[in-house]
Design a protein around this nucleic acid. Sequence first.
DNA 1: CGCCAATTGTACTGATCAGTACATTGTGTA
DNA 2: TACACAATGTACTGATCAGTACAATTGGCG
Lengths: 187, 187
Amino acid sequence: MARLVSERSDAIMALAEVFRTHGFEGTTLSVITAQTKMGKGSLYHFFPGGKEEMAEAVLEEIGGWFENRVFKPLREDRNADAAIAKMFEAVDSYFRSGHRVCLVGAFALGRECERFEDQVRGYFKTWVADLEACLVRAGHKHIEARDLSEEVVGGIQGALVLARSLDQPAVFSRSLSRLKQRLEVKR
Amino acid sequence: MARLVSERSDAIMALAEVFRTHGFEGTTLSVITAQTKMGKGSLYHFFPGGKEEMAEAVLEEIGGWFENRVFKPLREDRNADAAIAKMFEAVDSYFRSGHRVCLVGAFALGRECERFEDQVRGYFKTWVADLEACLVRAGHKHIEARDLSEEVVGGIQGALVLARSLDQPAVFSRSLSRLKQRLEVKR
DNA sequence: CGCCAATTGTACTGATCAGTACATTGTGTA
DNA sequence: TACACAATGTACTGATCAGTACAATTGGCG
């Protein structure tokens, strides 16, 4: 049944929003059923492993999205500048210009960082490495490229923290353009 | 009794470590009693308001530490450069060169941001504002100072996320020196 | 229609949660 | 020593937790 796949992936999108809002520990089964309108029956049918499997599926979904929209372009695009521009666009749209928070970043700060170590570490490791390689292709020196990629990936995460805490999404947008500019200027 | 105050403040230090490790939702009473060696009797004696009051006390303690060691110097030190140097030193020592995470930042990304809105927002708002004012005193233009202060405070938070997720404290140290240098160069 | 498997609602389970009550212990002071 | 009160351990409470079992329902296909 094709329907199964599509409904499960719908569920993952809804679950992602719940986890983003409540964190892993804060996401109780009753919160999930309330917010996704899915009963326990459906949830455990699609995710027999329970909450843990749900979170894993969500992280996988997020990883896949970034792989397609950010990491792969950074690795494969002929035009490095275009790939970087694409990255900033994708990031801005994914985080809704600062209205949305990064689940992987939130997991990184908590105990979830151990439970989902591979996925959390993989996400950031890939991002930094692919951006670094792209910057090298764009003409940066290696050490400079490493520093810049850490600065940008970290800068994005920090901007999300700041924008959320101050309730000023504009802080995120400003940071993003600053980081963008930084990659252009430094060369 | 003077002893009361001192024991309560000891408890706050221990609690801070627990909340940093497990997050707010993940910090159950049983985790607290296990990690702090304090029984429920003591905990509810010092914090009749329960977990919420404990977290508030911890946030207050953190806020006080940063007020004394970071914010006040930024506001009051005659020598702006010295105040900024002091800030970086304090930050590096507080976050144990990237081995420790920022509880306020973690709260900012989760639902705790609403529950402890005042303390979380106050922390970041004060930090950015005081750093900005200090940068103006150091000779920066106003808009430039605002951008730089957001960049630095956000950059620190992002560096913590990155360092933690990659399990590479060195990432934090590198970021810190980069940010430090940035405040010197730009002028 | 009628069958079968996918899907879902619901009523359970035992464990654990935050918080309370209260008796017991420790300690400074008179 | 004796008293008063701070500090603490322990045994409860009802609520909620994740997860299970299973019967009822659905929807596609012959």
